[in-house]
Design a protein around this nucleic acid. Structure first.
Length: 817
RNA sequence: GCCCCCGUAGCCCAAUGGCAGAGGCAAGCCCCUUAAAAGGGCUCGAGUGCGGGUUCAAGUCCCGCCGGGGGCACCA
């Protein structure tokens, strides 16, 4: 190899095959292995074509941490796999009249090759693909366990339907009324679907977040808290005349005396049950009107309140007042009890409705604000209860406690908790996913496929057979669908839905421990050793999707006794996006940057370095603001320094130039701290300085034969190996060492070389710098103060005795005249 | 509308309440070279979005604005 020019392609061609032979990143399997374990997990990719710039960033960042752990001597698990079920494969298959597996596995190979070239420190022996029957078999096994525990169930109800993808979606997959995948407007449909009972775990999902404090970004936890949306209040029973008791949920039972009307969700069955005969036509009209609205229109806060009087009245349980019952779409049928008591004085939504339809406003809480009936502004805050019988004079909190007590003794209500979180709708009417292992039998009902008959593999459908026709594609595979009931042996049919692919990703990190294990989804003993994950790295787009589902799965597995921890990911790092010219890369904008092309132009190391050096890992990287060419220059410079060292390996560093040695050890010390705190960009800046210092020593200092230069270059090689493995490996070889630098061991800073024999102390008068003196780092406050006051430059600004002297030895003295 | 984060040289970014600049890009200059490229070196540059406050001392803490980004938004 030509040592004069930096040729990244040649470095890659040289080292990649050697590394493959060394296989340095295998997890240690020996349970007696004394090394402490570390588990690094990158969010596994979906195989849509080749790796893109976003992958380039996230894997580069995670690899710095993983390689750091390897250098520090941990037993590291850093696996890779593919989230390979999903719609794009299916759509591609329809278009090309092919099988989704062809497209999927071809892309996986492409990405795997790119990962190898990108030099990520994976243990390739743990590779898995969720679309392999040996993987999804365990989705089905887990489904059976959930089913046994009553955590998987089937029910009818209004669901979100994506007309473009022709499937239902979970609540989490609907963003502002649109399909999270394709952006199509979601419509509501009445369908019978499978659900996971995640709501049973709402409290634990919320309360266990305590364990993640400090380890997860605050905003992700906020999003999850909002999503779960726990609220406390009371259930209150109103009697509806001519119908019977109806319960409502309220967070403000203290305002019960201010309820002036009652609203049921227009789409709730209750509305048609209670409507007066002469109002039925009006309700039907209103309901069809509401049904026409999209979610986006319905949820708009700009929209005026609508509703219809149902011709019946409800009786307020505490004062016997008759209040009219309305139906409206601002009340949701699937939250609380689908009906509310309306207190317009203290709730803006109710007030808007009251003003629209001329309903009375009754103030029951003095807040010091103007009358809501006059201003149209509800007063939801604190205050003193009025017009409320036994509650009068109480505070809001006092009244809430008191009214709950009253309701409970009268049997008219009780304290209650509600959640925004809904159960996880998991069935999908598409092909390329895990078949739900249920057989429907006319006599036995829903019968799980026995574990020993798993996996239920997908039938061989391709091309046109996969095209959406409003029913699940699996329904057309009649040979597959028609089976004998496992219970009674009679004729029965398989469930034709497949599972949401978020099921696949909810537990994949446990499968990595032994991806071919046949005794269960994972080996319980290994999960005990390796879980939970020490560091998870991935995009923030999964804040309430994958991350919530995984947390739920782990809690269920914990209850099953299969894992010993209740949270899967102890630390979470959300890397930023790679953008270009201030905007997300997109085909329509034509501002896309291709990772492969960047690598071809600048080399793997320069691209990785650029990703990590651009800024803090959470920040977006604007590719227009960074310079992979400059990264390449630095790497070339570093490699030249390493190549110019002329002392022999093993040279005694102690005999080297002390000043350079101090720089080296200070750098080691700082870089260690910076990597520990994930400030990689700053760490790289320190490595650049070390490189410059070594360069100077070679050119105009102690020369290339000085052992201190070797010490600096060797430290540089090891530290640089986290970011630029090819360059570091080549430099390591030129320094006379055997591969691989990745396992050379993290350098140790010698504390003796970190102490300074003098530091510059700043002397301020009234906060302005007036003098500097070189002092010993362990000078006493008293000595330093005396020294400062003795300065002529300082004295020039003083007249008489200073009022105050602040001494911060050894760095600063501030004299207040 | 509510909540959170961020505003430091032309640009990207550093700075446990203690000298505003570590590093990089760009710009300019010098050395090396027959020349260019590559390489080596030097220089330039902001008083920290605006206005108050706390403090001996504020980029850092507090309050109010302005600008940018994100989250939530009929969940009773």
């Amino acid at each position: 190899m030509d040592e004069q020019v930096y040729d990244p392609q040649a470095l890659q061609d040289k080292w990649l095959p050697r590394w493959e032979r060394l296989d340095a990143f295998r997890m240690g399997e020996d349970p007696q292995d004394p090394r402490p374990r570390k588990y690094m997990l990158d969010m596994f990719p979906y195989p849509s074509g080749d790796l893109h710039m976003g992958h380039g960033e996230v894997f580069a960042i995670a690899d710095v941490i993983a390689r750091y752990w390897f250098q520090k001597g941990y037993n590291v698990l850093h696996p890779i796999g593919w989230d390979s079920f999903g719609l794009p494969a299916e759509n591609a298959a329809i278009k090309r009249n092919a099988h989704p597996a062809e497209w999927t596995y071809k892309n996986i190979e492409t990405q795997a090759n790119s990962f190898r070239r990108y030099a990520i420190s994976f243990d390739w022996t743990r590779r898995l693909h969720t679309s392999d029957p040996e993987y999804y078999r365990w989705n089905q096994w887990l489904f059976n366990r959930f089913f046994e525990r009553g955590l998987a169930y089937r029910r009818g109800g209004l669901v979100n339907w994506c007309p473009n993808d022709q499937t239902v979606l979970a609540n989490e997959q609907v963003v502002a009324g649109r399909c999270e995948r394709c952006g199509a407007e979601v419509v509501r449909r009445e369908l019978t679907q499978w659900y996971f009972k995640i709501t049973d775990y709402a409290d634990r999902l919320l309360d266990d977040m305590e364990q993640l404090e400090g380890g997860w970004p605050e905003r992700v936890m906020t999003m999850q808290r909002n999503w779960i949306g726990r609220s406390t209040g009371a259930d209150v029973v109103f009697e509806i005349e001519g119908h019977g008791p109806v319960t409502v949920y309220t967070t403000r039972p203290d305002t019960l005396f201010g309820a002036t009307f009652f609203v049921v969700a227009a789409d709730a069955p209750l509305a048609e049950q209670i409507v007066a005969p002469d109002r039925r036509a009006a309700l039907d009209d209103y309901r069809s009107e509401v049904a026409k609205l999209s979610d986006i229109e319905r949820l708009s806060t700009e929209k005026e309140k609508t509703g219809v009087f149902l011709g019946v009245h409800a009786i307020n349980p505490v004062n016997g007042e008759r209040i009219p019952v309305w139906a409206a779409d601002y009340v949701l049928s699937d939250y609380g009890h689908g009906a509310i008591m309306a207190v317009p004085a203290h709730d803006q939504r109710d007030l808007d409705f009251a003003r629209k339809f001329g309903l009375p406003v009754q103030v029951v809480l003095h807040t010091g604000m103007a009358d809501p009936g006059e201003t149209g502004i509800a007063t939801p805050g604190e205050g003193t209860l009025v017009n409320s019988g036994p509650l009068d004079g109480l505070s809001k909190a006092g009244a809430i406690a008191k009214i709950i007590e009253i309701l409970e003794t009268q049997g008219k209500g009780a304290g209650a908790v509600n959640y925004r979180l809904r159960d996880w709708l998991l069935s999908r009417q598409r092909f390329w996913g895990t078949p739900i292992p249920i057989i429907h039998c006319a006599d036995c009902g829903e019968v799980p496929v026995p574990d020993d008959q798993l996996p239920v593999t997908l039938p061989d459908l391709r091309g046109e057979a996969l095209a959406p026709k409003g029913v699940a594609p699996l329904a057309s595979a009649t040979d597959w669908v028609n089976v004998d009931c496992p219970k009674c042996g009679g004729p029965a049919k398989r469930d034709t839905d497949t599972m949401d692919t978020f099921v696949d990703s909810s537990w994949y990190f446990l499968r990595y421990l032994d991806p071919h294990y046949e005794g269960g989804p994972f080996e319980v003993e290994k999960a005990k050793q390796w879980g939970p994950i020490d560091q998870y790295v991935g995009g923030v787009e999964h804040a309430v999707l994958h991350l919530m589902y995984s947390r739920f799965f782990i809690k269920v597995l914990y209850d099953m006794g299969m894992v010993t921890f209740t949270e899967p990911f102890m630390r979470l790092l959300n890397q930023g996006q790679v953008i270009n010219q201030g905007k997300a890369m997109s085909k329509t904008l034509g501002n896309g940057v291709d990772l492969g092309e960047q690598i071809d132009s600048f080399g793997v190391d320069a691209v990785r370095l650029t990703m990590v050096f651009a800024g803090p890992p959470e920040d977006d990287i604007d590719w227009a603001d960074v310079s992979p060419a400059a990264s390449q220059k630095f790497l070339a410079r570093a490699l030249r320094v390493m190549g110019e060292v002329s002392s022999a390996p093993g040279a005694d560093f102690e005999t080297g130039d002390i000043e350079l040695r101090k720089v080296t050890h200070r750098t080691i010390d700082e870089v260690t701290r910076l990597i520990d705190t994930y400030r990689f960009n700053v760490a790289i800046a320190r490595l650049m300085e070390l490189t410059t210092a070594a360069r100077r020593a070679i050119d105009s200092g102690s020369g290339p034969a000085d052992p201190a230069v070797r010490e600096a270059a060797e430290a540089l090689a090891v530290m640089l190996s986290l970011i630029a493995p090819y360059t570091a490996e080549e430099g390591w070889e030129r320094l006379g060492h055997q591969a691989t630098v990745a396992k050379a061991g993290w350098p140790q800073a010698d504390p003796a070389l970190l102490v300074q024999e003098s530091v510059t102390c700043v002397i301020q008068v009234a906060g302005k710098v007036r003098d500097r003196v070189d002092v010993s780092p362990d000078i006493s406050d008293g000595d330093l103060e005396a020294l400062a006051l003795a300065s002529d430059k300082v004295q020039a600004y003083l007249s008489g005795t200073p009022r105050k002297v602040i001494v911060r030895a050894p760095k600063l003295v501030n004299i207040v005249p």
